[in-house]
């Protein structure tokens, strides 16, 4: 599998990274060299093999479904690039 300029444009869009037109071709080259190297994994027979989850079998811990945190609005907003009246300010999304 190898990627072309259009695939790079699509992937950049999915990753929400603005990539200038002139960077698409060089990026395709870089990605292809990494992907070609990754292709080696096709040599490994993984029939019937389970995907790895953890080296130490452990049950996920459960806890009571109760509020254990909160009432920290000002802390949550403390690093916002833009906030007003206790809200995040975001670009207009509805016309």
């Amino acid at each position: 599998m190898s990627v072309d300029k259009n695939t790079v444009r699509k992937v950049a869009r999915l990753a929400r990274i603005a990539v200038p037109e002139e960077r698409l071709e060089p990026l395709a080259g870089e990605l292809n060299s990494i992907l070609a190297w990754i292709e080696q994994l096709n040599e490994v027979n993984v029939d019937g093999v389970e995907a790895m989850t953890t080296p130490v079998a452990m049950k996920l811990p459960m806890r009571e479904d109760v509020v254990s945190d909160g009432d920290i609005r000002d802390q949550v907003l403390a690093n916002a690039p833009k906030s007003e009246d206790g809200f995040f300010v975001v670009p207009k999304v509805v016309e």
């Binding site: 990026l27 990605l31 992907l35 993984v46 093999v49 995907a51 790895m52």
Partner: peptide, 28 residues
């Protein structure tokens, strides 16, 4: 670069061929 690779290998139709296979190789 890594985000692009990651997005590509997780994109529709490629999950099994890349991520799932890699996780199986991890088991090996």
């Amino acid at each position: 670069r890594r985000l692009m690779i990651g997005t590509y290998v997780l994109s529709a139709g490629y999950y099994d061929a890349y991520y799932l296979r890699a996780q199986k190789v991890r088991t090996k």
